Simulated scan of single mutants.
Amino acid sequence: MIKTIFFTVIIVLFFYIIWINNIFAHRETYEMPSQYAKIASDVKSYAKEGKQLFEQNCQACHSVRYDAVYISSVQANPKLKTLQEKYGKVLPRDVYEAVFHEDLMALKESFGKVPPDLSTMYLVKGKEYLFNFTLEPQKVLPGTSMPPVMAGRPEETAKIIAYLKSVSEPSPEEKNKRVLMGVGTIAYLVVMGVLLWLWRGKILKRMGLH
């Protein structure tokens, strides 16, 4: 049993180090002035205004599906309301992409690819990257088709990032549900592991090998 536990721990550590938290991956760092970093992190104070700024400056190309904010052409499409009555405000991704395929392809023709949905972009890239990329897209990613719509507007950019942070983070209730689910899953695996080990011992004993 000790060997089994040992190898299980080794496998978990391997996946954590190599797959989940790849220590060999190249990580770029970006600077962000502290006054703007505070704004970007203060969801309670700035997320609402950040959403308004997003709708004014970014919604023509980008969606935030987790908050039921779709690109402008989709938002103006009467089909959206009908679909939301059927599926809820947040449409399933496959439904969204199938019904509004033409709108998405129009963006692809303009920019070379469909601009990404930003629902989880804060979690993926972090506030420092988003701040620098939004202000100076060509400097951070040369050749990108994203226009510098927020150039020279660092405070407003930070507020948009605060909004994206608010969308990407689950509510306290959802966090508690996820924690309980995680604890329950681990407990289930531990119990099943013990039962399987005991069952294995009985089988070996019957076979005269234990």
Rank of each mutant, 00 (worst) to 15 (best):
Q56Y: 08
W199C: 10
I11K: 05
M32Y: 01
M192L: 15
F54Q: 02
A25T: 14
K89T: 04
T82F: 02
K3Y: 09
A187E: 00
S41H: 08
D94K: 13
R200D: 14
K125W: 08
W19V: 15
F6G: 00
S145D: 10
W199T: 12
V191S: 11
T134L: 05
V183C: 07
L130W: 05
D42T: 07
L180N: 10
I186E: 00
L196M: 14
Y163M: 00
K175T: 06
T185C: 11
M1K: 01
K175M: 07
E109D: 14
A37I: 04
K108Y: 12
P170H: 09
P137L: 05
E128N: 13
A106P: 06
T157N: 11
I71H: 05
I5Q: 03
G193N: 05
F14Q: 01
R206P: 00
S73H: 08
Y30S: 02
Y129A: 09
A106G: 14
T29F: 07
L196V: 14
I18C: 08
F15C: 13
H210L: 14
V191F: 15
L180Q: 11
I160N: 03
A40Q: 02
P148M: 08
G50H: 11
K125M: 14
M1L: 04
S119C: 07
S41D: 14
I23P: 01
H62C: 00
L135W: 00
K38N: 13
K205Q: 12
E155Q: 15
R93Y: 03
K3W: 05
D117K: 06
M150N: 05
L130M: 14
L204D: 10
Q35L: 03
L209H: 08
T29P: 01
D94L: 11
Y122Q: 10
I20D: 12
I71L: 13
T29D: 05
A47D: 08
S110F: 02
I20N: 10
L123G: 13
K202Y: 12
M207C: 03
K139C: 03
N77M: 03
N22G: 11
E155Y: 01
F111I: 03
S73N: 15
K3E: 06
L123M: 07
I203C: 07
G112C: 02
H62Q: 02
G182F: 06
K165Q: 10
A162C: 13
A158M: 12
Y30P: 00
F100G: 04
L83G: 12
L53W: 08
Y36Q: 12
M1C: 03
F14H: 00
A37N: 05
P33F: 04
L107R: 09
I10W: 04
H26T: 13
Y129L: 09
M207S: 05
P147N: 04
L13S: 13
L135P: 07
G184P: 07
T82Q: 10
A187R: 00
D103F: 01
Q52S: 09
K89M: 08
E169L: 15
N57W: 10
K38A: 15
V149Q: 06
S168L: 09
M32D: 02
G126R: 05
L135M: 03
